[in-house]
Design a protein around this nucleic acid. Structure first.
Lengths: 229, 229, 229, 229
DNA sequence: CATGAATGAGCTTTCATTCAT
DNA sequence: GATGAATGAAAGCTCATTCAT
């Protein structure tokens, strides 16, 4: 009867009310956006494509997000910055020793971010920061700074408890961050280009890093390290 | 015959031969392109800008490179190879202990690559790998693998000499690589977006990493590390 | 039944009957549209804004007016007619001399039309006549011609009474009309764009016009005006 | 031989060089823009249409004018503000009496602006000023103020020479301006909508205005004008 | 009747690429 | 070879209009 029975509308009629759809829209759009941003980059992802992937029209996208940049910010909030408070809680209520806490942090990041599409966002930001300074600033404030603060807390905990040697935590943060970010880059930039026969095991990669990190942080260094540089 | 003899051409005729200029064209274009790609990214660099920087017209650029993508490929190819054999020699003739060699490697990388435009190429590759899979493979083979081999050699030297603890050198490579790559990304992606008041000292960053790395690699770990994860 | 009973509806139910509201809808919409069209122009006024100002939803607007253009037509029709007969009566019962009548006419126009939103309609018609030829014709017939007739009558009264010099009243009409229309345009087109420090006093503007007009119309011109053009 | 021999190119080949075309481009674009802006308004005129009318592609328009607004400004400069200095010279070298100068000014405006498409610009500005404040400001500065200054000069000359009665020239300017602007509005807004049988003679309209204006400005007002308002 | 979620045509501006000179 | 004028596809965003609820 309807001259243009679109699939989406049929689906809508089938599954229930428009209202339900409406509530689901932002989430569907965010999912589509995350996938496409990670896959093709921010600039190369067209708004219309995101909309199509979410099963709506171009206009609808802008009904929920006032611009492509806002959409990106929402994606970041949804997938990263929104989780910091949860992580902070976990950190503060952790009862083991600091080495275990540190291990737990890294593995938890891997499970919840690193191994998921969400880690593509970090890669994205590195790639596109130069062309979208506003997004870069947003990311700095919303992700980098809180994230660094979290890591700093873990290190400080270890130092305060005498579990880690004394170190400049400001820069010590990067002892964790660099390996994680490198892994994110690898996943999304190089992995797709490497023949699948070459094995690279992220878990082993992370293990190697954590082990050496913790050995390095241990209170009694094995021997006086000669420094002549 | 030409109604508008441009200054550039006059200059060219004055200072030397046109023929020489002609031969130099592709190189000048590649230099200009490298500088701009690193500075602004691939997408944000306009072909006309590259041409202008090289002192030629837009049309001429396309005379030598059939497209912007081909130009990018040529830039990467041009700037990647050639240094590894030199480094390999340095490595093999190094006479100090392995810790010092490792330090020397990292600082040498920083001086010759990390702190120069050249590190922009790594950033470019990470950013654009998705759009140039063929090039990513080339980079993988031509840069990543030889580079990794070099690092592996340093680690193996330390292990063999009993200076470093025994470890999986395959993955140990990333203990050095990740911090360096993260620094390259940082330099070219985020640094321009961070308020210049925030201090980030690359030397201190690298120092922190090397120190911890070497402490971690030391043969007698400080204390038995409990592992419960 | 409605899960989200809006304030407006509650208010409507509280303060009176819904039936009354229903009948008032078109009028409220026309009022809102007049205000916005005058304030922002036809193109820059969004249908949704009109609806919101009238306290209804976008859909409702299109329930009463099949398109934005039809709304515009209705606004013009609603706000134009009806005043001429009153003015005609005032004119015919005026007891002073014709100069005073003329002054009175202009100042009365200023008070009742020129200084109010109503003068915005003239501006709108000028702006949009090209896009609404049908409406322009309507305006011509319903407003311009009766208005001109009124002015003509005033002039003719002065000429007949020997108070004004003899002149072609057909074109003399514009001696009054042009200054008034220019003022209307000014009010609605340029005034908002001029820095408020620049003073422009409409009363003084009109005074200057009327004074000169009446001096020009006076029966004994001061001196033989040489004409050589 | 050429697979897509476009008319324009054929014409180009026929009439001479590309270079000649290039010099002519801006002028052709300005002509096309003036015609379309006057005919359809600024907002309703699409850049592509202007280009097509000038026989070039969309891109070419933006090669010569960096935006649609800049195009408009150029049209204004070309057709109005560019002429003020010429008018000023004419005014200063005029040797007749001030009444004749004033007549001459008005008739000259009519011949060179009022009766041509250029007068459409005034209409345009009135219509669109609200939606394009930047253009309105430009027009104020570039056209309204210099134009007013010119008229003021004429009036002041008459007053200084004792030919005109003393009056507030600031507002006296509008005694000339209003009739001219009204005529411009009429031409472009209402004329197309009035049945061509109705006669309206712009020359007679202007004559009527100038005559009355000059009578009003004459030094000896005919009779004491009673003012009771 | 009323709603407001959804649509999609429409418009300006950019820029890699072409090709007549 | 070299030039640079010209092209036109592409993309983000707006808003009048529709229609399921």
């Amino acid at each position: 009867m309807c001259p243009l029975p679109e699939l989406r509308q049929l689906a809508a009629q089938a599954c229930g009310k428009r209202a339900r759809r409406k509530d689901a829209r932002p989430g569907e759009l965010l999912d589509a956006a995350l996938a496409l941003f990670v896959e093709k980059g921010f600039a190369a992802t067209r708004a219309e494509e995101v909309a199509k992937r979410a099963g709506v029209s171009k206009g609808t996208l802008f009904l929920y997000f006032s611009s492509k940049e806002e959409l990106f910010k929402a994606v970041v909030r949804e997938n990263i910055s929104g989780r910091f408070s949860e992580w902070n809680t976990e950190l503060e209520t952790f009862e083991g020793n600091s080495a275990d806490l540190l291990r737990s942090c890294v593995m938890s990041w891997w499970e919840r971010v690193g191994s998921t599409k969400a880690s593509g966002i970090s890669k994205l930001m590195m790639s596109e920061a130069g062309n979208f300074p506003e997004l870069a600033a947003f990311y700095q404030e919303e992700v980098v700074q809180p994230g660094n603060a979290l890591i700093r807390k873990v290190l400080q905990r270890g130092v305060d408890a005498g579990e880690f040697r004394n170190l400049n935590v400001e820069y010590g943060v990067y002892l964790l961050l660099a390996p994680m970010m490198f892994l994110a880059m690898w996943q999304h930039a190089m992995k797709p280009c490497v023949s699948p026969t070459e094995t690279f095991d992220p878990a082993l990669y992370l293990q190697t890093h954590i082990d050496n990190l913790l050995m390095g942080l241990a209170v009694r260094p094995a021997a006086p390290l000669p420094r002549e540089l």
